[in-house]
Computed example of a mutant assay.
Amino acid sequence: MRNPARYASLAAVGLLALSSLTACANDAAGSTADTGSGGKGETVKIMVGGLDKVIYLPAMLTQRLGYFGAEGLNVQLLSEPAGVQAETALVSGQVQGAVGFYDHTLDLQVKGKSVESVVQFSHAPGEVEVVSAKAAGSLTSPKDFKGRKLGVTGLGSSTDFLTKYLAVKNGVNVSEFTPVAVGAGPTFVAALQKGAIDGGMTTDPTVATILDKKAGKVLLDMRTPEGSQEALGGPYPSSSLYMQTDWVNGHKDTVQKLVNAFVKTLAWMSTHSADEIAAKMPADYSQGNKALYAQAVKSTLPMFTDDGVMPKGGPETVEKVLKAFNPVIKNANVDLSKTYTTEFVKAAK
C-alpha cells in the first residue's frame, strides 16, 4: 500500500521537481516486474501508471503471454500509482516508454515536450466516477460537485483532467470543488470509507472492490464506448504506449517490435473471455478474490481496441475535454497529428 501523504507531496512540488523524480526512480527500482525473457534481447524500460489497474492490463498481459520475448525484447515493466508519475519518468529520461493516458501527449506538447502515442489500447476512458455510500443521497450527478472533496489518482493525472471536465460541463467551476490525490486501490477505498473524499474517479479493480464492500455507488460509468459518448461527447482514447518522439524516430525497429507485441495482445484479448484473461495475470492482482477480479476485467473489457488503432475522432474529443478547463491548452494551438502515429500499428497488421 502506498502512503497517501506521498501523493500530496508529489503534487506540491510540481511535475518535474527533483524530489518527485527521485521518489519516482526509487519506487521504480523496487517495482520492476519479472520480464519473463531471461534478460535476453534488447532492454526497454516502460513505466506504467499502475501495473495492477485493469485499464493498463495489456502491459502485463503482453509480458505474461511471452510476446515481448518473441520479438527479441527484454521489457522491464515498472510501476507508479498514477499516470502523471509515469509521464514524469518518461520526460526525465528514466524510461523509454510510458503506459498511460493519451491525453498526456497533448498536455506535454503545450509544455514544449514532443511525445506521441505509438499504439492505442482503448477507445474509452475505462474510468468510473463513484460516490460514497454516505454522500450518495445528495451527490447524484456532476452538477453536485460544488463544495465536494473528490478523489483522483494524482493532481495533474488523467482522472484529475476528466473530473475537471465533468465539473465544467455541468456548470461547476474547477475552483468550487477540491480534488484530493488518493491514488488507487486500498488508499482510494479507505479515503472513501473514512469520509476523506465524498466521491472520486477510479478504475477496476478498485471499482469492483468498492461495490463489493458496499463502500460506494457508481455515479458515472465510462468503461464502454457508449459511456464515453454520453459523458464526453465522443470516443476518448485513453490507455496507450507513448514515447518521446525523438526516441521513436531514432529507434524505429525497437518501437515496431513493441507495437507488434501489443497489437498481438489486443487481438488475443478480443478472442478470449474475462476469466481466461484474468487467469493469465499475476496471482496477487486478484487480492485473494479471483471471481471479483475476473468481474473487474469483464466490466472493463469494452474499453479496449482489438487492433491498437487510434479511434476516429478520438484526438479531437480529448482536445475538447482539455480545452474546457485547462487555460494553457485552451489558448494554445495543439498539433494533434504530432500526438500520435499509426505508422507502427499499420505495419504490425
Rank of each mutant, 00 (worst) to 15 (best):
L108H: 06
G147M: 08
T163V: 13
F145N: 12
H123V: 00
S138A: 12
P142H: 08
N170K: 08
E129T: 14
V130P: 00
P142Q: 10
G137R: 02
Y165I: 02
T163N: 11
K169R: 15
P125Q: 01
K143V: 13
D144W: 03
F145V: 06
N170W: 10
A135I: 03
V168E: 04
L150E: 08
V130K: 07
K113I: 05
G154D: 15
K169F: 05
Y165W: 09
V115D: 02
T140S: 09
V110D: 08
A135E: 12
P125K: 00
G112C: 10
V110H: 07
L155K: 13
A124S: 04
S114P: 01
A133F: 10
Y165G: 06
Y165D: 04
L139R: 01
V115F: 05
K113F: 15
G137V: 09
Y165R: 00
G151D: 02
D160V: 05
F161T: 00
S114V: 06
S158K: 03
F161E: 03
V168H: 13
A124M: 00
G154H: 10
A124C: 11
G147V: 13
L155A: 13
S141W: 12
T140E: 05
V131I: 05
G147N: 06
K149T: 05
L162C: 00
G151P: 02
K113L: 14
G137W: 02
K146W: 11
D144F: 08
G154F: 12
F161A: 13
T140M: 03
L162F: 03
G151V: 06
A167D: 12
S117N: 13
D144H: 10
P125L: 00
K143Q: 14
T153K: 15
G151H: 01
